[in-house]
Design a binder for these strands. Structure first.
Lengths: 368, 368
DNA sequence: GGTAATTGTGCCAATCAGCGG
DNA sequence: CCCGCTGATTGGCACAATTAC
């Protein structure tokens, strides 16, 4: 009995290995298709032991541990994440859902997010929703199928409170980034929009004596736009400026949107003291519109997000720094803490800062 | 015997279903954990039939097909991609490997890539290598574990010919994007760099009578930089300009890199007729350096890639359009055709165009 | 007889070849 | 021939069982 079983033990794996070699001999002479079984056979241990070594758990002697590791690298073993996910009902994957990859700010955000998640051993499954809530629902569905451990989401414009509710029902950890939703308190990481808008307006009112303000950019109904405008209004109220001195020109959040909204503003005949823009991209577009009409030196402009090129702009763009990359890191940390079973501060509103440059009318800094 | 087994057959699924309900009763009252088996039971068919309906293959009567579909949506079924991948040895996933997510050009590229892949039913597993070949190797390893169907890669600076060779050995379909490697002919989609550099230089020489040129930006050893410079040199040679009239200032491909290289150029005392930049970001940084020294109106500048903000720049930046989003679409198409078993044109070099604006010295276009 | 080290076995969800009404 | 089912298979993990000292 013992002899026979031990023979089987030896023969089985070898046969299996040979078949595999034959099956894809010229396709993949190296690591492709090497299974934990192959590793175990090569190291002369059971699949279970090999698994323990792989996951660095359980009690395995240092000697065999070393031997198994050697076999792994010798065979070029790559663990099959799908198989693990099947068994665990979860994977080392996080769904990342954004509204527009072409937006430079999201690039910076993603950069930070990806770095932190990768460092923790998670891979990013990326989806671009084109700011469409239906596409967002579809994305979540698909990502659920991939058994993502969690979701980092820039919610699409028009997302309702049902969305976070449904995620909660699913028991799927998530964080919203940079845009939060009205009503339901949901996990969130982003800069304080009210403060950001307030910061911009206060600077323009207090140091530049602005009395008429235009808020340009951001689609109607987007809460972050509402909030930033709220911050602007508060600054105006605090300074005793009538609310009627604020004019809104919503637009798509992009350079093209800013250009068009800027034209509309100019065509309207309005000549505000400042144009507070919803994003740096919008500000870039607005500047183009102003220059086309020779107005660039007459009206102050501020941006939002402080993207890398803002400081290089002519004139250097005064902007509200939301520190996109850092925000990405924090969103990752938020999600990772949830995944680790902790419960992090639900809503993390970072405090934005104003990066004062020249587009607001301030003098150039001396260069060190 | 028969009775017993048939009883087991009936009881098993119900018991399993009940256990599932209990296990996560308050966690996920809806679709989470619904399996194809549950769908089959609900529709009164076998798992296999349900599978056929799911994948829209095989011969299933329209009646049962409809019934199964109804059960799927009734239960909120979400197919488990991991299980499918385990069985198929491949997933509906593509690995996307880039060097720096924060680079706006890659944002545009990814936008196109993701859209096309998503339309074909593939999800993107995203990795940012920080332009490090070792991180790139690690990324491929990890992505292999996820059983990606293919790879879309912006190769890191310093990648050797061994890299595509190893991918080929693995039998893993891939495309390189925007940067190609010396030597080995590998699947590639990107704009023709020699032509791009040539286009910029020719314009400056032919219409602006430039005789001294500086090429700024791009790290040493990057082939796309070498090629663009090659194109510049050819234009110079064609015009009878000595090769010594070309000066190189390599830098990191970013605004910060451009700013620093621009300063170095200015400090060197050189005052070329044109500065041809390796990317728009670099051009933005160079412009800042020029403005700091009051030189912005004296030296012409061209960018590369024609990112969205290039047209909004002051002065509007003359650039080489490589059509990032379109490139992303084409890279996706290349990969998808490989996956479909076809063999697309291995190296697809799109022809870049020059977007003539004012930074080169051309007059402003009349506005329609 | 107790403890560290290792192993066997059943599962996870979907797919596919082969079989039968 | 059309339709649908059975049973085996995929790679890794968890738990109980088992060995060795």
């Amino acid at each position: 009995m013992i002899d026979r079983s031990s023979m089987e033990m030896q023969v089985q794996p070898q046969t299996a290995a040979r078949m595999k070699c034959m099956r894809r001999a010229d396709h993949a002479p190296n690591g492709a298709g090497v299974t934990l079984n192959d590793v175990a056979a090569h190291a002369g241990v059971s699949r279970a032991t090999a698994s323990l070594v792989l996951r660095q758990t359980g009690r395995v002697s240092e000697a065999t541990r070393e031997r198994v590791r050697a076999s792994m690298s010798a065979l070029g073993y790559v663990p099959d994440r799908g198989a693990a996910a099947l068994r665990n009902h979860t994977s080392n994957t996080v769904g990342v859902v954004v509204t527009n990859l072409a937006n430079p700010f999201f690039g910076e955000l993603l950069h930070g997010l990806e770095k932190s998640l990768a460092a923790a051993g998670f891979a990013c499954l990326l989806v671009d929703t084109s700011d469409d809530p239906d596409a967002q629902d579809a994305a979540v569905r698909e990502l659920r199928g991939h058994k993502v451990a969690g979701l980092a989401i820039v919610p699409a414009t028009g997302t309702t409170a049902e969305f976070p509710a449904s995620l909660q029902e699913l028991g799927l950890p998530f964080v919203f980034m940079t845009r939060y939703l009205p009503g339901t308190p949901a996990p969130y990481v982003g800069a304080d929009d009210v403060l950001g808008g307030n910061l911009a307006a206060r600077h323009m009112i207090d140091v530049h004596n602005a009395t008429t303000i235009a808020y340009v950019g951001g689609p109607i109904g987007m809460l972050s736009r509402e909030n930033r405008i709220g911050g602007v209004k508060r600054a105006m109220a605090d300074a005793g400026i009538a609310a009627t001195s604020l004019h809104e020109f919503p637009s798509e959040t992009s350079g093209a949107g800013g250009l068009q909204a800027g034209r509309e503003l100019i065509d309207s005949g309005l000549r505000p003291d400042v144009i507070i823009c919803h994003s740096d991209s919008v500000a870039f577009g607005v500047y183009r519109a102003l220059r086309l009409h020779g107005l660039a030196d007459d009206i102050a402009v501020t941006g939002y997000d402080d993207v890398a090129t803002a400081a290089l702009w002519e004139p250097p763009l005064t902007s509200i720094s939301t520190h996109g990359t850092e925000l990405g890191h924090r969103a990752a940390a938020h999600l990772l803490e949830q995944l680790a079973g902790g419960n992090p501060q639900l809503v993390q509103r970072t405090t934005p800062e104003i990066a004062v440059r020249q587009s607001c009318g301030c003098p150039a800094q001396s260069i060190g």
